[in-house]
């Protein structure tokens, strides 16, 4: 029999940890923002994001894509560790005991509460060894120079390292569509490096996400 009292051990009922009105706190007296654990937060305004792109472009030219991807990986590595620590603390249990639904929903909510848009996972090609990630309303590619090339390098880095750590497999991430080249959202494919090898060339030749996925799947 289900005992309601037992469900309420220590009276807690963990829910939406990243609910925005709970998660973000601010003190105008100190000029500080922090999260519900008291860790510092920063609001990065759009002009700074734009400046990151234009500043890096001025200083490093074409290499700026690689630099941003690297920054994304570093950022993602620490983000993953912090994210896991926060959830484990909140649920008062080792992360391994947490269901995947709760874990991923927290991840999506965390993404939104930070104002990074909406992140969705596409598991259509899971059996073929690919995981799709869609990011809508991305502030990063909205601030990036608009052109013909995907500009989601920061996100590519953070997503790649996040899922690499989550799955314990060395995954690579390739971007197939981008709002900076007038697509509806940013789409990424995660998979093993050698299976993703043809993607960049297909993106460069202007192929759409669906077509790229078809080719990848057919290549087996």
């Amino acid at each position: 029999m289900v005992s309601v009292a037992d469900l309420l051990t220590d009276g807690r009922l963990p829910g939406n940890y990243f609910a925005q009105d709970l998660y973000v706190r601010g003190s105008t007296e100190l000029g500080l923002l922090e999260n519900r654990r008291g860790d510092r937060l920063l609001a990065i305004p759009n002009p700074l994001l734009q400046a990151i792109y234009s500043g890096l472009d001025k200083e490093t030219g074409q290499a700026s894509h690689l630099v941003l991807y690297n920054c994304g990986r570093w950022w993602g590595k620490n983000f993953y560790a912090r994210f896991c620590e926060e959830l484990a603390d909140y649920y008062k249990q080792p992360l391994a005991n947490l269901s995947m639904a709760e874990f991923l929903q927290s991840f999506q909510q965390c993404w939104k509460t930070h104002g990074w848009g909406q992140i969705h996972l596409d598991i259509t090609y899971r059996d073929r060894g690919f995981l799709g990630v869609e990011i809508w309303h991305s502030p990063f590619t909205a601030a990036a120079p608009q052109g013909q090339k995907p500009a989601g390098d920061l996100e590519r880095g953070i997503v790649e390292i996040f899922f690499t750590q989550l799955t314990g497999r060395e995954l690579r991430c390739a971007q197939t569509s981008c709002t900076a080249k007038s697509d509806d959202c940013n789409r990424f494919i995660l998979g093993l490096e050698k299976r993703l090898a043809p993607v960049d060339a297909m993106v460069a030749s202007g192929q759409a996400h669906q077509a790229i996925m078809q080719t990848l799947v057919q290549q087996g």
């Binding site: 829910g15 939406n16 609910a19 639904a101 709760e102 929903q105 999506q108």
Partner: peptide
């Protein structure tokens, strides 16, 4: 504010 983006997703997931 508290439930949106959380509870509906949990309902679907389970």
């Amino acid at each position: 504010d508290r439930l949106q983006g959380w509870l509906p997703e949990m309902v679907k997931a389970y």
